[in-house]
Nucleic acid binder design. Structure first.
Lengths: 202, 202
DNA sequence: GGTTCTGGCTAATGGGCGTAGCTTTGTGGC
DNA sequence: GCCACAAAGCTACGCCCATTAGCCAGAACC
């Protein structure tokens, strides 16, 4: 009986393949049985490399978040202000459309108390940090940065989520709608930078 | 052997209870076994009232979407413009926070081709219609309404999603951030109504 | 009072996760 | 070259869940 030559990383890689092949529900449908089949191995053999399905899912999620963060940083390097914001948002959306399964994996919130989620929390924080850095060019007051970060993440994530979920009919117009949303976000963040706008119209 | 006196509706109601008790993952964790236990009945008995777990999930989702739509209409009646937009967004967020499991159920996109999803598609359309009606007060050009609807849905849904997923630390500031987001959306929608802003800054 | 339909039941299948314990392969020391 | 041991497979098993099949009692209707 020849060995398959697996390893922790190899199993995670195969799991990512399974997720990618499963479309938008690929992450939800991830199963040890599928990974084992792809590895050409009996399902229990995976436990030599992985603690449990939950562990594997976490590892896939961490990898996906790192991926997304990398895409975001790559898109914003050398850009600033509205230009950077648009590039970051478009990079996110492109990633989600190209890797819907992996994008879904990035959406699971790590448990704030579970020590097993420590790295997941860390990579999530790094991913938020990209937005914080990108917003530096807007000259926001310190206490407004958090609001801007949340507005940017919410808008883009919400749009992508609805798009992937099939929430938009008339697919041709989706790009334009995304552009309109970005105009809105850019204007909104810029408005936050003006001290006068602190208590904008009730 | 006494009868439990179940019915399709009764089973769906119990399923909603299970979902509500399961927190944010209540919908994902919905199981026929749990519903049967709550009904005081053996699991296979449920098949006298429900076609499958998938059917039950769909029914719960439809109920949840109707609920959310009702909350939105109730919040906007008698209001217009920015006032109505804020009320609608706050109603959505409140619903999500108060019924996280049911809110999660509203997020599954109905299959555009599956006849079994016909009512799901219908109630989804009704829920979008609330936003369209609400936006009437802004006097948007016809071809901009769709962009505005998508921007509103994306922003609010994204925010709520991140909030429920534990994506925001510093919980005290979340209300303020939501207010900032709404300022941004209100301003953005208003800007869409001005014909001059059609080709806003690249 | 009997017939029929309905809503329960138990039994059984199949699939998935996870555990236990066996076997084989590769490797490192002698 | 040989032997011992760790690592990486495997099979067998238990448990939980969805789902199907077939049985049985009670309710409703004639």
């Amino acid at each position: 009986m020849p060995r398959a030559g697996l390893s922790h990383d190899a199993v995670v890689r195969l799991a990512v393949e399974v997720v990618d092949e499963g479309g938008a529900s690929g992450f939800a449908d991830l199963t040890l049985a599928k990974v084992a089949a792809k590895a050409g191995v009996a399902a229990p053999s995976l436990y030599k490399h992985v603690g449990s399905l939950a562990d594997l899912r976490r590892d896939v999620a961490v990898l996906a978040v790192r991926d997304l963060t990398a895409a975001g940083t790559a898109a914003t390097v050398g850009r600033a202000g509205a230009d950077a914001l648009r590039a970051l948002a478009e990079a996110w959306r492109r990633y989600a459309v190209e890797h819907p399964g992996r994008y879904a994996a990035t959406q699971i919130g790590p448990d704030p108390d579970d020590p097993a989620d420590a790295v997941a929390r860390e990579v999530a924080a790094e991913s938020v940090q990209v937005v914080v850095s990108m917003l530096r060019g807007f000259g926001l007051p310190d206490d407004r940065v958090i609001d801007a970060v949340r507005a940017v993440r919410s808008s883009v994530h919400g749009f992508v989520q609805l798009e992937l979920g099939g929430g938009f009919r008339m697919r041709e117009d989706v790009d334009r709608s995304f552009g309109v949303l970005l105009d809105m976000v850019v204007a909104g963040v810029a408005a936050l930078a003006e001290p006068a706008a602190a208590g904008s119209p009730r």
